[in-house]
Nucleic acid binder design. Structure first.
Lengths: 126, 126
DNA sequence: TTGACATGAAACCATTTGGTTTCGTATAAT
DNA sequence: ATTATACGAAACCAAATGGTTTCATGTCAA
């Protein structure tokens, strides 16, 4: 239970290259919007909207200082990604491709022993 | 150097929840399109398009068997994600928030010691 | 107090995305 | 030979996305 109902999920937030660059830029500390947008070839408003999306995903925090708003990285939500990834790590030790796993699971290779349409992924998130 | 010029990048490919479910479903082995689409509340064609996107990102492989096309997981491209994530791991040990890092880096907190606008992220991908 | 700076909100726009239905074609089954 | 199955391609559509410009507001500086 980190942020309450994050309007944007982490997967979407990091899907955009500009937003990934934003995260990287904010790694070194707090920066106000104008300075941040100076690093990008688009309007300040556009950058501001990206920052909003990152904030909605919990990946950046903001703080008002006088007339400026400073943003900083909060990497914590990336742990969700880490957990998601961990599930797949064993599959890229290509000691076992999906094909091989299938064949070895039962030697049939014909018939209809496909995933039973129910009882598959009983209820895990994704 | 895995796939040559992947038309879709991994970040985008996994941004969609349906596609993440597809990956999970294909973990256990090869499946033909019709069986796959049976697990989703949308048309076969829609699922097929998702599979195409995953294939473009290198996350699934396909194989023609008679009149069917069977898809299987290829987790290898997820290693890129893993590397990307690794960069941020040290930041979610919240022993040090971005704010703290900034303050401790130099005690100024005023002035203009913001990221120098050049010499920032000299040339790393994202 | 007057003007400049920092920012978000709003309205708008083109393109991409995620979905649909319809159709053509290759393969398998009768 | 005919029919049924598996699939992708194409045309289409609504909504989301990534961007723009303009405007209003709050804060700092002269």
């Amino acid at each position: 239970m980190s942020a309450a109902s994050p309007k944007h999920d982490v997967f979407q937030a990091i899907a955009d290259r500009t937003r990934r660059k934003l995260l990287k830029l904010l790694v070194d500390g707090e920066l106000p919007v104008t300075v941040i947008s100076g690093h990008f070839p688009m309007s300040r408003t556009a950058v501001s909207k990206h920052l909003r999306i990152l904030a909605d995903a919990g990946l950046v925090k903001e703080r008002k200082v006088g007339r400026e708003t400073r943003f900083r990285l909060d990497a914590e939500p990336l742990q969700e990604l880490k957990r998601w990834l961990a599930y797949y790590e064993r599959y890229w030790d290509n000691k076992m491709s999906a094909l091989q796993r299938y064949v070895e699971a039962d030697e049939v290779m014909d018939d209809k022993p496909y995933a039973p349409l129910d009882a598959v992924n009983p209820e895990t998130k994704d």
